[in-house]
Amino acid sequence: MTFATFIKNTTQFLFKAGFIFWLILAILELLMPGFVIYYINMQLWLIVVCCLAVARAFLCKEISPPKADAPMAQK
């Protein structure tokens, strides 16, 4: 694994894990009010997840090979 792949994979993992964990905590908070919000800033967490999503979008952007031109419609 190269350093670039490591950064890409780690960013992708942190984004996915961050979002899933946020979702789990949000559900727990809805079920049991006060369970999470007194201990953690959920809004800040979501902002971090959004930043990771942006970073992921830049890092994981792969240049897809140009598509072959669609065959021209026959007249």
């Binding site: 694994m1 350093f3 792949t5 490591f6 894990a17 369970f35 953690i40």
Partner: peptide, 28 residues
């Protein structure tokens, strides 16, 4: 060995979350 570091990061993040959830239930 970046592969090893990557799996280490994964393990630490998941373990930290699990510990945090246990802490929340303890507080609850």
């Amino acid at each position: 060995d970046f592969k090893r570091i990557y799996f280490g990061v994964k393990f630490v993040v998941i373990a930290a979350f699990a510990v945090f959830v246990v802490f929340l239930f303890w507080q609850k």
